[in-house]
Amino acid sequence: MAKRPLTRDLQFEKKNQDMVKLPKYARIQKRPIPHPPIASPYAGPSTPKTVYISSSTPFMSAVKRVQKLLHQTEKRAMASVHLSLSNKTKTDRQKLAQMAEGHEKMRKEAGQEEIFIKATGRAMEKAMRVGKWFGEREREYVTRVKTGSVIVVDDVVEDEEGRKKVVEEGEKIEKEGEEKKKKKKEEEESGDTESAGSKSAAKKRKRAAAAETEELPESRTRWVNVVEIAVTYK
């Protein structure tokens, strides 16, 4: 039995509008989705730490990257405790009390610094599985899921040869239509009414004429769904 996709229950706001259909001689070339530079694991708590997931990211590799970042949050929180314990003027009892207090403080501070797992499109399912791995270990970690969208830019690539063929095809259809008109002996019931064949030919001629004059945009934008899973110590 196939597993139920974890992304099935996610809800996203629909932002994309119906896009204008491109002619046959043009195609869309997707650009990589930009994201901020990856922060150093050793940066302070004010710098967000994010693990970006792609469809080719190995599952356990992503889990270990998140674990490493979480471990660094713990080390940063513990640094102040080690500093205070280095004071030689305090008694052993004072140090033990301070160690217990410092441990609680460390867990609290580490629990306030979140590590983010982000993915878009088809990679969202893998990101959700990574988040589920941490969510199942609820004694140690806390997770929360947030959905959203990001705007991306795609390039419109024009094929000159393809455009030329479309124009030539339109000219050929137009020529054939003129020849049929000359051979036609039967009068149309109404001077304003065209036969189905002539209507189809007229549409193709119109498309061919548009292909000659239409200026294609260099790019166009669209919205892509994104999922963000925040992981922190409990």
Rank of each mutant, 00 (worst) to 15 (best):
217 P>Y: 02
163 R>K: 12
232 T>K: 14
32 P>D: 10
52 Y>Q: 02
191 G>F: 15
214 E>P: 04
94 Q>W: 06
58 P>M: 14
159 D>T: 09
41 P>W: 03
136 E>G: 12
225 N>D: 15
220 R>Q: 13
171 E>F: 10
219 S>G: 05
233 Y>A: 00
173 I>A: 13
102 G>L: 06
88 K>Y: 08
111 G>H: 05
59 F>H: 10
155 D>T: 10
35 H>E: 08
174 E>K: 10
40 S>L: 09
130 V>K: 07
73 T>R: 14
79 A>Y: 14
116 F>M: 06
38 I>Y: 03
5 P>L: 02
211 A>L: 02
215 E>G: 03
154 D>S: 11
181 K>M: 05
99 M>A: 15
46 S>K: 12
16 N>I: 06
134 F>K: 10
70 L>A: 06
192 D>L: 15
18 D>H: 07
189 E>F: 11
204 K>I: 10
81 V>I: 14
97 A>Q: 06
87 N>T: 05
32 P>I: 04
205 R>A: 05
143 T>K: 07
163 R>C: 11
67 Q>K: 05
64 K>C: 00
150 V>F: 13
95 K>S: 04
9 D>T: 14
190 S>L: 12
167 V>A: 11
188 E>I: 07
74 E>A: 13
228 E>F: 00
92 D>T: 12
84 S>D: 11
17 Q>Y: 08
194 E>Q: 15
165 K>H: 10
147 T>R: 09
55 S>A: 14
120 T>K: 03
173 I>Q: 02
74 E>G: 08
6 L>R: 15
10 L>K: 02
183 K>M: 09
147 T>N: 05
91 T>S: 15
118 K>V: 13
18 D>L: 13
234 K>W: 02
109 E>H: 10
134 F>E: 08
124 M>S: 09
144 R>Y: 13
120 T>R: 04
47 T>V: 15
103 H>F: 10
10 L>Q: 03
157 V>P: 04
209 A>T: 09
104 E>S: 08
64 K>G: 00
171 E>P: 01
112 Q>F: 04
76 R>C: 09
183 K>S: 11
106 M>N: 06
25 Y>G: 07
124 M>I: 13
29 Q>N: 11
82 H>K: 14
73 T>N: 15
5 P>V: 00
132 K>T: 14
69 L>E: 10
194 E>G: 03
42 Y>Q: 04
155 D>F: 08
211 A>G: 07
6 L>M: 14
